[in-house]
Design a protein around this nucleic acid. Structure first.
Lengths: 212, 212
DNA sequence: CGCGGAATGGGTCGCTAGGCCCACGGCAGC
DNA sequence: GCTGCCGTGGGCCTAGCGACCCATTCCGCG
């Protein structure tokens, strides 16, 4: 689950993008700001893995965001893309770049790529086919596809409300330690940090609906 | 959330009952067994708060269940109810009794009553109006109806995946201690024991769909 | 045959979650 | 005006969670 912040004064675009991204199973927009300064104020209370910002905004543009944020990769989006702007964004420390006319798959790929530590589309529009290819696949089931049978089994119980380690261990006839090992592996694959988020993910991915 | 085991060799009845009960927000059937011995074998791996068992079954009837289970209240259900059978069940240690022809609301009330430590319909069919009244209310939203605004707000965030105390505290502009106090209150009202189960409940109750 | 992944375990460590006490101001209802 | 509930906090304590090491067995794939 990649949590994304959006800073854009074009509210319609931001909301449309938010809706579209929320429909992807591995991306969730956790906040929308109308300016760079607004984003810097609010992001502390709602952490994210990726920030998307417009360059030109009234009241603190994208450059303010690029300066104010350190730990989180920032993707710059502009109305009219040019190599000039790409390079400017790259110099300012952006991790990615795309035009507002880019298709959703490209935007999603950009988000996934920078979330994974890559740099996206900074040099030119070309030359990113490999990244596009690599990060457009996980549109559905980000890490879920790579979940093992045992991990899915644990998630199924988690989604049903069996959250205690000892109960899970009894249900699966394994030791509590093994349960915790599986959970740790699940957390990594789903990019979550505790079993509550894992349970929510499991429900969202439909893992709770199996059999019974 | 009251977890229920059903032991009944009439598969159709058991499955129908299971479906009906699962539609209630506060009751979930966690397992169905075709005989008393089967139930005793499997209940260890799937804990429940209430057991419902038929009296007459091939391969270990309800009496075996009543003898084999200690911590969990057992409700006896029969095809043809009679005061004779009620009293026999009561003597054998049953916590409740109902006929297979009883309406769903009565069955649900019986489950809720014995889950709360009451004894239901053991003496006769009459004289339980008070219990029926008391435990038929929470058909929808068990404790959810009594959730305060602040508690619903916390559940909303929980269902979105914000599970860490410090993150919740920042989002709500209150101290971590108050978050934990609210959570403790939520756990009681929803009859859950940790925030994972609370998040699942919140999703099921539709508390996650509000606004945004 | 060797490599890697899956599943099963072990240990340790720090922090958090949850249980259980309590307090106080505000506000509504009676 | 008093009482009860809500929201806000405090302290304390234990068990459990999650992060980080690690080992072993089995099985499939190349």
């Amino acid at each position: 689950m990649i949590r994304v912040w959006i800073a854009d004064d074009h509210t319609l675009f931001a909301q449309g993008l938010s809706r579209a991204l929320d429909n992807l199973p591995d991306i969730r927009v956790v906040g929308i700001a109308a300016s760079g300064s607004e984003l810097l104020e609010q992001i502390g209370s709602q952490p994210a893995e990726v920030v998307i910002t417009d360059l030109e905004m009234p009241g603190g543009g994208g450059s303010a965001v690029l300066e104010g944020i350190e730990d989180t990769p920032v993707i710059v989006v502009t109305m009219h893309a040019s190599d000039e702007q790409r390079k400017a964004a790259a110099r300012a420390g952006a991790a990615g770049f795309f035009s507002k006319s880019a298709p959703l798959t490209t935007i999603a790929a950009a988000i996934r790529a920078v979330a994974a530590g890559e740099r996206f589309d900074l040099e030119s529009e070309e030359g990113n086919e490999e990244l596009l290819e690599r990060y457009s696949k996980p549109q559905l089931d980000p890490g879920a596809a790579s979940l093992t049978e045992r991990e899915k089994e644990i998630l199924k119980y988690l989604a049903k409300g069996v959250s205690a380690t000892d109960e899970l261990a009894e249900l699966l006839f394994i030791s509590q330690k093994t349960v915790k090992n599986h959970l740790a592996s699940i957390f990594q694959k789903l990019a979550v940090s505790d079993r509550t988020q894992a349970a929510i993910e499991a429900i969202r991915l439909g893992l709770a609906d199996d059999d019974e």
